[in-house]
Design a protein around this nucleic acid. Sequence first.
DNA 1: TAGTGGTCTAGACCACCGA
DNA 2: CGGTGGTCTAGACCACTAG
Lengths: 235, 235
Amino acid sequence: MGKPLYRVVEDHIRNLINTGKLVPGDLIPSESQLAKALDVSPGTVKKAITNLVWEKLLFRHQGKGTYVSRVDFEKSLFQFFSYGDAEGRSIRIHKTTTDRRRQEGSAAICKRLGVEPGTELLYIERVGLIGEQPILVEYSWWPASVVPGLEDERVHIPDFLYAMVLNRYGVPVVRAQETLTAEAADETTARMIGIEPGTPVVVLKRVTYTTGDRIVEVRTTKGRADRFSYKTEIR
Amino acid sequence: MGKPLYRVVEDHIRNLINTGKLVPGDLIPSESQLAKALDVSPGTVKKAITNLVWEKLLFRHQGKGTYVSRVDFEKSLFQFFSYGDAEGRSIRIHKTTTDRRRQEGSAAICKRLGVEPGTELLYIERVGLIGEQPILVEYSWWPASVVPGLEDERVHIPDFLYAMVLNRYGVPVVRAQETLTAEAADETTARMIGIEPGTPVVVLKRVTYTTGDRIVEVRTTKGRADRFSYKTEIR
DNA sequence: TAGTGGTCTAGACCACCGA
DNA sequence: CGGTGGTCTAGACCACTAG
């Protein structure tokens, strides 16, 4: 069917990842091993891997091998909430948990999560602060079956939630989709981040995926618009 | 100094572009020509070009040759103003010129343009409509010396301003930077797009560059937040 | 030292394009 | 048809990493 050999190699590697045989952070087989296993020349394997490296699915480390990329939440739109135009570099946003509980999901949330209406969910609400000042609120929902026991208040929720979910439940976050809009602040959000209701807030909706395109979380972040600025380059 | 050969080739091509010897749309020398000219093997040239293709600086066309990419304003954040959540695909936004004149630039604008304060500028104001409904306003400034005569009202300003500037003045747009925020609508903007002052608007600031990193335009677009939504994928 | 990826070369053959 | 890029191979040599 005329599919180039290097594409066959790419698909092979992609499959290892999509089926969970390889997980972010894993070392993949070496170029020569792959060449033998798939019976193609080393140059072809190199080309396939080079393509996947450009796609950021893999990264190479000379002398060690080739790894599956970790999800790069540095590229999340979330990062663009900052200390305004003060020249100082990106100051970390610290998060405090303000609410969490198990509950049945609303129809809308269940639809976003791709689960049956009325499924048991874990709801987590956090406020993001720069220093003492609240900047944003985060509303997050997980299928309760994915993170059992996380509703227990004695379990501490760290800033890096996904790392914790990986360690505790073995569920790796593989990719995510984000959508950005702006709207007028609702009363709850406004109160939590200390602005007037009706003031503009930036709204960031995220869908988080694990292996096999399964959704594990939907999240809505609302933050002060005056602390948000997103830059791109067009060529 | 240990710079890899393929990097030398890349830099050579990049230079041809940055100095304006090659302009977006141009055909670059063939791989074999470059190999001879720079005295490296064809494989090395191929690798260099492959890198630049991944960077989207070039694109190849089998049987024809390799070209310098045109700026892809499809990727502008501007594109994410749309007909709301109506499933229908991206409907074109038509633009009407509402004001244009030569004037001295304010200190702030001149600074963004990188010119002396008080430089003569061309100011263009346009409203973007979907169908009959105004969605956004665009405030744009050019050094008057770049686009002489464009203040003349008899000169029609088309939707694709950059194509016109290229044809009329031979000034190619090579890249642009965009910054996105949200804020409350000022009175002028609100009136022009038919919303209440104070309602959230999305603010998009653009700096447009021609050959040799020279700024030719700064532009601020303000649009209805409820018509804006920007999507990304994180991996 | 053995194994990994990184660079560079040389050449064969194919697919596409335009004159 | 000749010239372009696209695929694939084979092999030499280098640079880095780990044991």
